[in-house]
Amino acid sequence: MPYNVLATSKTPALIIYLLDVSASMNQDCGGRTRIDVVSHALQKVAVKMVQRSTKGTIVAPRYRVAMYAYSSQVIDLLDGIKPIDELARMGVPRLTTLDMTDTAAAFAQAERLLQAELPNLQDCPAPLICHMTDGEYNGADPTPIAQRIMAMGVPDGQVLIENIYVKAGAMSISDINTWPGILSEDELSDNYSKTLLRMSSVVPESYRSVMYEFGYQLSPGARMFFPGDQPEIVELGFTMSGATPVTA
């Protein structure tokens, strides 16, 4: 799959965020709470998307964004899909923690959204789901839904899923800018990391080039999986979600 269609006003990229806001997101992550690190990274990627959509002082709607927080229920943070220029006006919503981790419910919500949207996205870049969690799910296994989603697609390519796993000790990276990314399960120690890896797409070449421009050197074949509780990894993961190619 080429993943070469550019995100433009007429062919915007659809980015769906699934954000775990379970109570454990209040735990420490590099001196801040996990939820603070994620909120900060989310703000940074929103800024990046606005920059990549800007000509002069006009923001072209090159991205469309949906954002769901999930705990024991799924909360639509933006009240539907919002173009990036509208998100710029609204601002990134504030995240607050709740209780459980019903990951399957979040993926089911994304699947419903994609089923409704895909017919209208045939000329657009392949949609991307950015899932961030800090722990294993309660309730149903999200894997079958994620696999169904990864089988959906548009001519540009199948739907991309990336996973950011905010877990203490999952991985320690000395230099995030030269980190090659995760290439195989052998690099992971715990089972849930391996499960999430299997739910993570390979980074398309076009995304890898954009990430290189952003200062990251992911290897060919690296997966869209970012484990660890270093704020830099979380940030890298969210940066990836805004890396759909655009015109210069």
């Binding site: 703000q43 800024v47 990046k48 606005v50 920059q51 002082t57 006006r89």
Partner: peptide, 15 residues
């Protein structure tokens, strides 16, 4: 322009 939203101002100032 004075009416730009805060997120856009942040994006432009950073650029």
């Amino acid at each position: 322009p004075p009416n730009l939203p805060a997120l856009q101002v942040q994006a432009l100032e950073q650029l």
